[in-house]
């Protein structure tokens, strides 16, 4: 099955704007994103902490709904999902 993943801001520079990813059944949200970041250390470190959890300020949206990072690991993606991952920007 296929899932669309979109990145914003700095994550976009590191990992690309929009990717269609083929995933296995029962893939969780973090594992889906890790499938993309596994060959990109900088991108991986920007999004995940040393335990492989989403960094606490990262915003993950699934089909335009906010994903609670506390249980992102139990969030199983489905065919046709639209996942958005982005960091808040801070400058002024």
């Amino acid at each position: 099955m296929n899932v669309k993943v979109r990145f914003f801001a700095r994550f976009r520079e590191l990992l690309g704007t929009e990717l269609i990813i083929e995933v296995a059944e029962q893939t969780t949200l973090p594992d889906l994103v890790k499938q993309i970041t596994q060959k990109n250390i900088e991108g991986h470190q920007a999004i995940f902490d040393e335990y492989g959890h989403f960094r606490e300020y990262v915003i993950v949206m699934r089909n335009a709904r906010r994903v609670d990072l506390a249980d992102a690991g139990e969030n199983i993606v489905a065919d046709g999902d639209d996942i958005a991952v982005f960091p808040p920007v801070a400058g002024g």
Partner: peptide, 10 residues
Amino acid sequence: HGAISGFYGQ
């Protein structure tokens, strides 16, 4: 609220 970085903004 507004914030920016590089060519990105929110």
